[in-house]
Design a protein around this nucleic acid. Structure first.
Lengths: 230, 230
DNA sequence: AGGCGCTTGTGAAGACGTGCACAAATCGCG
DNA sequence: CGCGATTTGTGCACGTCTTCACAAGCGCCT
């Protein structure tokens, strides 16, 4: 499940603040989900908490990290050292959460050679060489949309089987390669949709006008946390 | 639906390449979804394509932009001008997709006054002043996790009702405020999970060992595009 | 005008995720 | 040792999303 990493983060927080065990209620609150859902997720792990007590924090961290494949620190290749690529290269959240940026690559010769955070930018055509040095399984694409497909092909060619794509486009990849997409503008547009919905509901609740103005009511969006606590 | 922005992006691409109309089949391919799903989504809009022909690209863009509330260019406040904040401030995808960064804010006095992309960084305590100048509805949090909740409270206090949170933590906000979260490390961890799953499947398919080694098989993750085309 | 091919819109079936509510299990205490 | 408080694990029901398959509608060509 995609919620496991969220649980893991919450568990690390709990461990740092000295908790040895945690109840499903407590953990679910920290992770922002329903407690029944959390218990069901953990039961799918085969993870055994003890009834009446809760879950052993350290053990649970270990189990989740195993399932997520974080027992080994995975090497990540980052392609595209523009605005966003720079930020990603300097993001310490990767290092602290089980990943190591093994190479920075770019197609622009004027960027090659630049040093960012202790790593030297290499040309994207050096990918085969890089892959020979390191065991690359994950690639991150932070290039403009126009270059993304070509970069994806190059990554796949050197054996990368998981791609995180920040470019606003659909990638086509062979079977067995996983792609996850993050589009920052889309996130904002979804929020904008919620704004529009809220505005129409409060402004003219009794208008009942054309089909268009009546629309924004009946939509549902996923992955949105709304109104948790106060 | 959360897919509308994806359709919108695909439609803009089609419009640029000169298409006047598009079939559900064509658009769904460009957006990376099932064609029946796309038709159902669009029918929820009340949007009328013409049978035998397809959808009018320009009209559909107009309709989706209306539903998403993109007819007005929304002002966004960006709090936290660190590594990631810098990148977001310089990201042209926001401007080109209906948003305008109206203010850059940070709590660190040494960062206040810095100019990024034509905007001067102001202190986060100036939020009420900024909100008085602009009609702020959306806030973006790109601060460390420790500061995120306080910033969220400040944003809510000045009337922001939608928050995009890049900090790895759960925010608590009053009812009526929408929060969307983007955690870059979590995306990588999900990919790592897939890697681990693939590795276990290919390496020891007949081992049938402990419960732990047998685990990673039966999981499902959402939002993952796998094996599109070749 | 009529027929044919193409495309939309939708009914129905199935898969999936979610949350409630409760039985089973464990610990601590008298 | 037994009892009560607490918490996990899960059966069940419900609503949502997804997908197939097909009827209805539109335009073009003859």
């Amino acid at each position: 499940m995609a919620r496991l990493p969220e649980y893991l983060r919450a568990l690390h927080n709990l461990a740092e603040s000295g908790h040895e065990t945690v109840s499903s209620e407590g953990l679910s609150a920290a992770a922002g989900v329903n407690s029944a859902k959390l218990r069901k997720d953990l039961s799918h792990l085969g993870s055994y908490g003890t009834r009446g007590v809760g879950y052993d924090v350290a053990l649970l961290i270990e189990q989740i990290e195993f399932v997520l494949g974080l027992t080994q620190r995975r090497a990540v290749a980052l392609v595209g050292v523009g605005n966003l690529g720079h930020a990603l290269a300097g993001y310490d959240g990767f290092a602290s959460r089980g990943f190591r940026i093994a190479a920075l690559l770019d197609a622009d010769p004027s960027r090659v050679g630049e040093e960012i955070n202790g790593l030297v930018v290499r040309h994207v055509d050096d990918l085969p060489t890089v892959a020979a040095e390191e065991s690359l399984a994950i690639g991150v694409i932070a290039t403009p949309a126009a270059a993304a497909q070509q970069v994806a092909d190059q990554l796949v060619a050197v054996g990368v089987t998981s791609i995180l794509n920040f470019a606003p486009c659909v990638l086509s990849v062979p079977e067995g390669v996983d792609v996850r997409k993050v589009d920052l503008a889309i996130e904002l547009q979804i929020l904008s949709f919620h704004e529009h919905r809220k505005a129409s509901l409060t402004a003219l609740p009794a208008t009942g006008g054309s089909a268009l103005t009546a629309l924004p009511g009946g939509f549902a969006t996923t992955d949105t946390q709304e109104a948790i606590g106060t």
